[in-house]
Design a protein around this nucleic acid. Structure first.
Length: 307
DNA sequence: AAGACGAAAGTGGTTGA
DNA sequence: TCAACAACTTTCGTCTT
């Protein structure tokens, strides 16, 4: 994701009117080529900073940059008005000034209290971070999850439900939004909640918060399946190619994406001479051999692949 | 003997009346 | 709310390597 797109000729130097503005990537600044004026600063590319050769790689590697949210309530260093009515030189303040300062002090104490997050929010944030790190999710995804969770709290979706389940659902939604595929099963296990409950809660949150959750795609699972079975990049690339064709033909809709991914990897492993058994594929993809087989057969028939 | 294959029956979730 | 439906799972017998 590039949040700032620089195009030549689209910008003018406010100082000299020069239209050639150049980007200094090291400093993150746009600079006028003539007079050197910094036209724009703090330009940050939140996209990946490695080259990636496939969509999955891009997804795996696209976790660069600071998180865009700051759910660290109560952790920042506060500025406080001192207790004594003295200026920086240690002189007593005049009575009128002292009254004002005192008033400010009182106000600050109140706002500080208001700005302090509730204990439960801090706890929720900690829980989210713990679960996310167990799932090997980057900080940015954990922050997204916290954001979803806090919206759920604001909308009063918590009462009557277990907090843990809402948290798990928030994490699951964050995964989907960040295309870092995790199954309901995995998130449920990591959070210690029932998968069924999690599914219900996930749908509820998505609906009530109006979050459009992009559908799970088989490609998101391929790198992890390949890694689990020690398969080469070649197999991975082949599997991606197969899935992409299948998607184009519309034969993946409505099918369990993990099953499709497993079948594609199975075919790819055979084609590349790194054969794994259907059983192995089924195991790492958490589906049955039969499902692998059915998808495999479909892919083979519809794509005309001979194994 | 292990792996692959496929049929049959059961299960949980979605959809539309 | 209920029935129909598609997809997935379990189970099991047979075929292939």
């Amino acid at each position: 994701m590039v949040i700032y797109q620089f195009e030549k000729g689209k910008m003018k130097c406010p100082s000299c009117g020069n239209e050639e503005i150049i980007l200094d990537p090291a400093r993150g600044e746009l600079v006028c080529s003539k007079c050197g004026l910094v036209v724009r600063e703090s330009i940050i590319d939140y996209g990946p900073d490695w080259r990636s050769f496939s969509e999955e790689e891009a997804a795996e590697r696209g976790h660069v940059g600071l998180p865009l949210t700051h759910p660290h309530y109560g952790l920042e260093l506060p500025t406080e008005i001192g207790k004594e009515d003295r200026d920086i030189y240690g002189r007593r303040l005049p009575a009128e000034r002292a009254r004002k300062v005192d008033r400010l002090r009182t106000l600050q104490a109140k706002t500080k209290y208001l700005a302090t997050p509730s204990r439960s929010m801090v706890q929720a944030n900690m829980m989210i971070n713990t679960i996310c790190s167990n799932l090997n999710l980057p900080k940015a995804t954990a922050d997204e999850a916290f954001y979803v969770y806090s919206r759920a709290v604001k909308q009063g979706l918590i009462k009557g439900r277990k907090i843990k389940t809402i948290i798990a659902a928030s994490i699951y939604i964050a995964c989907r939004l960040h295309t870092r595929a995790r199954t309901l099963e995995e998130v449920a296990l990591a959070a210690g909640v029932e998968e069924k409950e999690l599914g219900k809660c996930f749908r509820l949150l998505a609906r009530k918060l109006g979050i459009k959750v992009p559908p799970l795609r088989p490609v998101e699972f391929i790198p992890r399946i390949c890694r689990a079975l020690g398969l080469s990049d070649k197999v991975q690339a082949k599997a991606v190619e197969i899935v992409r064709k299948a998607e184009e033909m519309g034969i993946t809709a409505g099918k369990d994406p993990t099953g499709v991914a497993a079948a594609a990897v199975y075919i790819a492993s055979v084609l590349c001479g790194e054969r794994r058994t259907q059983r192995e594929l089924a195991e790492v993809a958490h589906v049955t051999e039969v499902t692998v087989r059915n998808r495999y057969r479909e892919l083979q028939e519809k794509l005309g692949i001979k194994v």
